[in-house]
Design a binder for these strands. Structure first.
Length: 801
RNA sequence: GGGCGAAUAGCUCAGCGGUUCAGAGCGCCUGCCUUACACGCAGGAUGUCGGGGGUUCGAAUCCCUCUUCGCCCACCA
């Protein structure tokens, strides 16, 4: 595409966006400017605006899951990031935005398991090495896809530094952190109640459990007491009674005072179970007596531990009743077992009553299966010592949240933090770097940076822990592991700590909070100072867009139909801070046409201006004798210049404060309502030679349009680049990406001009309205008495009015 | 059960401690294919600013209260 080729009346982004993106990438414009100044080879002329010594600006990209297909959430998230990256780059910052993919342990394993299930196989039949090979092959493909999709929406990230959380470098970081935490006593192994997903067959962290309020039953059961009488207990999960090993009441509960030391006899099972006194029991709830199932309830487990009661696991890995229960229940799924237990208890006449009861039930965040609390041997991170500095960082303002109130959620979570279960019974992930000596006499447990063949204690054979780490264990490290840590690389020195994280609130605890803790722990400083949490993409019924609801919008579809600029404009202008983005999947036209129309408007403004630039364009500033003098400017000229300066300030402030919609709308208003609707109309007589001052008009309109394009570039990078390069004195080897940000001179706008032309606009509008109301034809005389310069009015109305 | 938001035109939202605040975009209505753009131009209609009370000369704006939505957290079995 040559600057001289005629422009068609409609803007067509097809092909153009890809072409421009390719040019940017080839010219290295996505990389930090300092990479070029420090590398051998010729300096890059097009990087003029960026100073080698400029301050870095680092945005931390949330790495998409390696199996993900780009959805509107990604589109939204990466658009916002790209807007701020492009803005800061134009302001001269040495920007770094590193892309990557997350191996996404459970999510990826589930996907591949489903694939091999189609072949009628399970991962256990394939075996671990073969399964891992299959997953690797699969993600190689999907990982490329998602990153290419980020390109399609214009993301200006540094592809040279692309990472994958299972890369060797990042794996070394994971091990280093694991070993370090272990040596500090912050990682331990132990048998506790954890959240178990019976479908994924793995432990989950507390954060990976989604609580859903459900209306269920509270069964009041009568347990007979040894020596006569009975004790009523209340439970929402009758099937767990098969694993009861005690009953607890509050020590001060008058009703049960004399029960201490007595035994109940567990119905259906016949086991003698003691009645214990414990403060954890709430006398006001239910019957005031709690059946204790220490292997399947965290509170029961704690109570049982205090009283030395046995914990009896009554379920298998996939949540069927195991052989610890009476024969008729064995092999039953827990929910079938519930029905059968209730039926048999009813037959025994020990079901006192059933009340409706609403409570929150945990579900696996990956497969939505009801999570089973279960006693299990797992690895944990002691979080309290890590949380304290992270909390302090927020309190001291070293990290802030936008919107601000999200900081409270962060603080609340940090204050109530519980230990993090980090081991997963999966095959896809970072294997836990722990080796157990096979020799029973030695039994040494070794934690090691490097793989072990032999026991460091006795020299005998060792076997590595079978489990892998929670995905989030590695992703929490990316702010520094992706820069080369634990090596002390130049990148690390230049780009850590970074500045901005833009992400969805859903992963505040999974990822954001943990990155802050990990950064403080390993690097001594928070990884970023600003966390911008944006809203969710929803449909018109305000439902989250999701695959299962089939209410999603494919961003690539939008790009194809309307262009990436239109997608980006819609997303940015429609998303004020703290709100959700509502889009109608049934009406893409309604949602994205405004962005497409705006691009087209810009295109035609460009066509008009470029088509009327024959003749010299004089500079507006500088010392040249041909420079336009202030006295030559008309009221309209001064007004548009003043409005432009005003818009520069509004847009800059909007971008700076993450009020991207304010910025986008201010620019939109300026370009469409002020520049196109008024100024271009007003200067037509001058441009056509019907009035003097065409050269001044050309100078003003060129400068103004140039500034407007630069202001808009972060939001609509493609159309602005395309037009900007065609302005006088530019070539295709220039790029708006590194053009200086407008408004380096901080002059206040000409207030008199703003008011003056504003008043004129009102006058003209009044005249036009009179004209339409009284049916005055163009050419007829309308006599208006005004106290403003008549020539300005005549110019504004045009010659025939 | 704790913590936190939000309620303004049909829809999505501005309005940032009281002066052009009753607005924008979309949608809707009426004219226009005016040589940059019909993906456009020129006009137009639409809101007791959730209810109630208070402070004030003056309140979408500040205070209280009620109602309704939403978000985060939570071991009342």
């Amino acid at each position: 595409m040559s600057p001289d080729s005629p422009l068609p009346p409609q803007y067509d982004p097809t092909g153009l966006e890809r072409e421009l993106y390719g040019q940017w990438e080839r010219r290295g414009l996505f990389e930090p400017a300092s990479d070029h100044t420090s590398r051998p080879g010729p300096p890059r002329a097009e990087r003029g605006a960026v100073q080698p010594s400029s301050r870095p600006y680092v945005v931390q990209m949330p790495p998409p899951n390696v199996t993900a297909q780009l959805h509107m959430g990604h589109g939204l998230n990466n658009t916002i990031q790209d807007v701020v990256v492009r803005f800061e780059r134009m302001r001269g910052r040495d920007t770094l935005w590193v892309p990557g993919t997350d191996h996404a342990g459970i999510a990826t394993q589930n996907v591949v398991e489903r694939l091999i299930a189609r072949e009628g196989k399970t991962r256990f039949e394939l075996g671990r090495p073969e399964f891992e090979r299959r997953v690797r092959a699969y993600v190689e493909e999907t990982g490329r896809t998602i990153l290419d999709q980020l390109r399609a929406i214009g993301s200006s990230c540094d592809w040279h530094r692309t990472y994958f959380t299972l890369d060797a470098d990042l794996s070394r970081a994971v091990r280093t952190v694991f070993v370090s935490l272990f040596e500090k006593g912050l990682i331990y192994r132990g048998k506790y109640i954890i959240n178990w997903c019976p479908r994924c067959l793995t432990a989950l962290s507390n954060e990976e459990v989604e609580k859903v309020e459900v209306e269920g039953n509270l069964w009041h059961l009568r347990y007979p007491l040894e020596g006569g009488g009975h004790l009523a207990v209340a439970t929402t999960r009758p099937e767990t009674m098969l694993g009861d090993t005690g009953v607890a009441v509050h020590p001060e509960d008058q009703r049960y005072r004399d029960l201490a030391g007595r035994f109940a006899v567990l119905p259906l099972v016949g086991r003698r179970i003691p009645v214990v006194l414990d403060e954890a029991v709430d006398p006001a709830f239910g019957s005031g007596a709690v059946k204790l199932t220490p292997a399947h309830d965290p509170v029961d487990f704690e109570i049982a531990r205090r009283h030395g009661l046995e914990a009896l696991d009554v379920m298998t890995d996939d949540a069927r009743m195991n052989d610890q229960v009476p024969g008729q229940f064995r092999g039953l799924d827990r929910f079938e077992a519930r029905k059968k237990v209730v039926a048999e208890l009813e037959a025994l006449g020990v079901v006192e009553r059933i009340e409706r009861h609403t409570h929150a039930i945990g579900h696996c965040y990956r497969c939505d299966t009801v999570v089973e609390p279960r006693l299990s041997d797992q690895w944990f991170v002691r979080m309290k010592p890590l949380a304290e500095p992270a909390l302090a960082a927020w309190r001291e303002g070293r990290v802030r949240f936008i919107p601000e109130h999200r900081g409270l959620e962060y603080a609340q979570w940090m204050e109530g933090i519980r230990d993090w279960c980090i081991s997963r019974q999966l095959w896809w992930g970072h294997r836990i770097p722990v080796w157990y000596c096979e020799s029973p006499q030695c039994g040494e447990v070794s934690v090691s940076l490097t793989d072990l063949e032999l026991c460091p204690g006795c020299g005998g054979p060792v076997r590595q822990d079978e489990d892998v780490l929670d995905t989030w264990f590695s992703s929490q490290l990316v702010p520094f592991s992706s820069l080369g840590w634990p090596d002390r690389t130049r990148d690390l020195a230049r780009f850590y700590p970074g500045h901005t994280l833009v992400t969805a609130p859903e992963i505040l605890f999974f990822w954001v909070a943990r990155m802050i803790m990990a950064g403080l722990e390993s690097m001594g400083e928070v990884p970023f100072s600003t966390v911008y949490l944006h809203g969710t993409v929803r449909d018109t019924l305000h439902r989250k867009m999701s695959k299962s609801l089939a209410n999603g919008i494919d961003p690539l579809d939008v790009v194809q139909r309307y262009g990436a600029d239109a997608l980006r404009y819609t997303v940015v202008s429609g998303l004020p801070v703290g709100t959700d983005l509502i889009l109608d999947p049934e009406d893409l036209e309604g949602s994205f046409a405004p962005g497409r129309n705006f691009a087209n408007k810009l295109w035609n403004i460009g066509r008009f201006i470029l088509g009327n630039l024959d003749g010299p364009v004089r500079p507006l500033g500088g010392n040249s004798p041909t420079v336009v003098r202030r006295e030559e400017l008309t009221l309209a000229d001064r007004w548009i210049i003043a409005r432009c300066e005003e818009t520069v300030r509004e847009a800059t402030a909007g971008y700076e404060r993450f009020r991207l919609n304010d910025a986008a709308l201010a620019i939109h208003r300026f370009i469409w309502s002020d520049l196109a609707d008024w100024y271009l109309e007003v200067i037509k007589p001058r441009l056509y030679g019907d009035q003097p001052g065409g050269d001044v008009a050309r100078a003003v309109v060129t400068q103004t349009f140039d500034a407007a394009l630069r202001l808009l570039h972060p939001v609509m990078p493609f159309i602005t680049e395309c037009l900007w390069r065609r302005l006088p004195g530019r070539t295709d080897s220039d790029s708006i990406m590194v053009a200086p940000w407008p408004g380096s001179d901080r002059r206040a706008p000409d207030a008199a001009a703003v008011r003056g032309f504003g008043a004129l606009q009102e006058l003209v509008a009044a005249v036009r309205s009179i004209r339409s109301e009284y049916g005055v034809e163009p050419g007829q005389t309308v006599r208006v008495t005004v106290s403003a310069p008549g020539d300005e009015l005549a110019a504004a109305l045009g010659e025939d009015e």
